[in-house]
Design a protein around this nucleic acid. Structure first.
Length: 591
RNA sequence: GGGGUGGUAGUUCAGUUGGUUAGAACGCCGGCCUGUCACGCCGGAGGUCGCGAGUUCAAGUCUCGUCCAUCCCGCCA
């Protein structure tokens, strides 16, 4: 026999059908209203809250104990469900209440350091320190339930499609490529270290070589890089890989999951296939490789209008191979000098040297730079932007990437300020990413934009040596509402081609062997054509849950300094532990 | 590594030109209260002004340093 009455019903599920039933609730006190002769408390459990009444008519002997109840006490309450004299239409259980005939206080609670029902009323610092209290909050519980739903859909979907779940190791070899590794010392091999995986990339390729055909895993990944609102040092990927596939096969499998998620989680039908937008177009129209296509403000290249311009900023940019591009901020002419300065600051953060602003008036264009433009140029701009009186044209002239990137950021900033972003979800694939990011200034070798196992478009092969920056990779991203939600590629499975890429990027045979030896070995034993993709699961849950903070969808997140305020990780360790590992701590010298 | 914002009661915040005893709301504690649901009414307790220096007759307020949280740039193959 337990020492208390065990739950017969969940609080949040009680409805009028239960009236006159005898029920027992187990849960927490979520507020009390002690009227003296009559005491109301709300009992909260995993499903919601229900009102309990203590009345001298029903159980006079309980009144003293009931008056001791405080927020977050753990109770077992038994009583009869009755219709309320005064219903509360605001709450799901508002038509009924429980007349208590038995009360057991199972545990008392300190006064909570913040209000559990309303997260907005306390600082994130405090809430993270007392995460176990914040996790009692219904909004946060809802997000974790949503996350669980995503797990279930993922397991089902890939299982139905013939994928095999395989766990890959957490203690792996460190590779110097990519993000900074978290490293783990080996006791058995003093002075040597494991790394925690940034992703299971190489293992999943090896599984393909081993003939497993289709692999999937919900995998933890760790990257020791600085954080953002949508980035945590450890995060979760839905990681998958497929054999004997081309890009289109992976994209179709991927959009299938997205449609299934939106259907099962939100009840929304997603129209397939999703748009496939080339990288070049995404950058040109939206100034981003993860465009938010839910609103306009698209970029326009206007360089061709200024071939003969007197305006030094523009002619200089064109002379050095730069780009002049801009957007029409519809109705933006009302912006004050101060607001324009803020927008200018914004583009400067992304490396732009400045922002040319031109207000559209009845007479033409007005603004600091307008006097440098001749009539032809003014008319050309008005036409290109379909500008009307009251609009403001915002133009950046700079090195192409900087120009597009800063305008892309400006576009988002204006959309946020002007509340132009609809609530709906919008998704697309960005494809045809460039194979290389830049030509290294020192070595003169191209720097791969992805990992060096990414294959290139067959028709671009001839440009590998002559114009490497024009070579397109078989790499793709899934973008939802301006978030990069998944990314992947078709891999190189041919040792000869792999060798050629290593050559091209300036990796000697020895270096390649040192870094990726076991994968290169494996490639020699009959690697099938293969490719895959990995979703950022946390970001998917963020979008599905309508939050812009990744910490809201992770049960125990870290701060932007990568510490856990609840358990105070990271921490110093015992000197003996270090000795055993052969590790000494260097004094940090401040300059 | 760089920039922005914030740190004052348990919590959220206010605090003027540097000047008497640092305030409010909520929460908490005590009393009253039989239909509350942000219960109400009366009373009360509660402060290392993040931390450390400095300027000053005098610092929550000014200066410098530092720590923490958060947003952004760099970074994240």
């Amino acid at each position: 026999m337990p020492s208390y009455n065990k739950r017969t019903h969940y609080a949040g599920t009680l409805r009028e059908e239960g009236i006159s039933q005898q029920v027992t609730l187990n849960g927490w006190v979520n507020g009390r209203r002690d009227l003296g002769g009559l005491i109301f408390i709300d009992v909260r459990d995993y499903t919601g809250i229900a009102q309990v009444v203590f009345s001298p008519q029903v159980a006079p002997e309980l009144m003293d104990l009931a008056s001791e109840l405080r927020d977050e006490f753990v109770v077992s309450v038994t009583g009869e469900v009755r219709r309320r004299e005064r219903p509360n239409d605001e709450m799901p259980t508002g038509q009924i209440e429980i007349y208590a005939s038995d009360l057991r206080i199972l545990n008392r609670s300190e006064v909570p350091p913040f209000e559990i029902g309303d997260r907005s009323k306390s600082s994130e610092e405090l809430r993270l320190k007392y995460r176990y209290l914040e996790l009692r909050n219904p909004e946060l519980q809802e997000l974790l339930r949503l996350r669980n739903q995503v797990y279930q859909v993922v397991h089902n979907y890939y299982n139905e499609n013939g994928f095999l779940e395989v766990e890959t190791p957490l203690l792996i070899r460190s590779t110097p490529e990519g993000a900074r590794d978290y490293i783990v010392p080996s006791r058995v091999h003093p002075g040597q270290f494991y790394a925690l995986p940034q992703s299971p990339q190489i293992y999943k390729q090896i599984l393909m070589i081993a003939g497993y055909d289709r692999y999937v895993q919900i995998a933890k990944c760790m990257r020791d890089e600085d954080l953002r609102a949508d980035r945590q040092p450890e995060f979760t990927q839905i990681d998958l890989e497929m054999s004997f596939v081309e890009q289109e096969d992976v994209l179709q499998m991927t959009e299938g999951l997205v449609a299934r998620l939106w259907k099962e989680v939100k009840g929304v039908d997603i129209k397939l296939p999703l748009p496939r937008m080339p990288y070049r177009e995404a950058m040109g129209r939206f100034g981003s490789d993860k465009p938010d296509t839910r609103f306009g403000l698209e970029l326009q290249d206007v360089g061709d209008l200024f071939g003969e311009t007197e305006f030094g900023v523009f002619s200089g940019t064109l002379g050095s191979g730069g780009l002049i591009s801009g957007l029409n901020f519809k109705g933006g002419a009302g912006y004050s000098r101060k607001l324009i300065d803020e927008l200018t600051e914004h583009v400067k953060r992304y490396g732009a040297k400045g922002l040319v602003w031109l207000k559209v008036t009845a007479e033409g264009l007005e603004g600091g730079s307008a006097k440098f433009l001749n009539d032809n140029e003014v008319n050309g701009l008005l036409q290109r932007f379909e500008a009307e009186e009251g609009d403001m044209l915002l133009i950046v002239a700079d090195e192409p990437y900087t120009c597009q990137k800063s305008l892309g950021a400006l576009r988002l900033e204006i959309a946020r300020r002007e509340d132009l972003i609809p609530e709906s979800d919008d998704m697309l694939f960005v494809v045809d990413f460039p194979m290389f990011e830049e030509i290294d200034a020192e070595t003169g070798k191209p720097v791969p934009a992805h990992h060096p196992f990414t294959s290139y478009r067959a028709e671009d092969e001839t440009m590998l040596d002559s114009e490497p920056m024009k070579v397109r990779a078989n790499a793709y991203d899934l973008v939802i509402n301006g978030y990069e939600c998944a990314g992947g590629s078709i891999r190189i499975h041919d040792q000869g081609i792999q060798g050629r890429i290593f050559d091209l990027i300036g990796l000697t045979k020895e270096e390649a062997r040192e870094k990726f030896g076991f994968l290169l070995d494996a490639l020699q034993y009959g690697a099938p054509p293969h490719g895959g993709i990995a979703f950022g699961l946390d970001r998917l849950v963020m979008i599905l849950g309508g939050t812009d903070n990744i910490r809201d969808v992770i049960a125990f997140p870290k701060t932007t300094r990568a510490s856990s305020l609840m358990d105070n990780a990271p921490s110093h360790v015992d000197a003996r532990q270090l000795t055993e590992l052969g590790i000494g701590i260097l004094e940090r010298v401040k300059e």
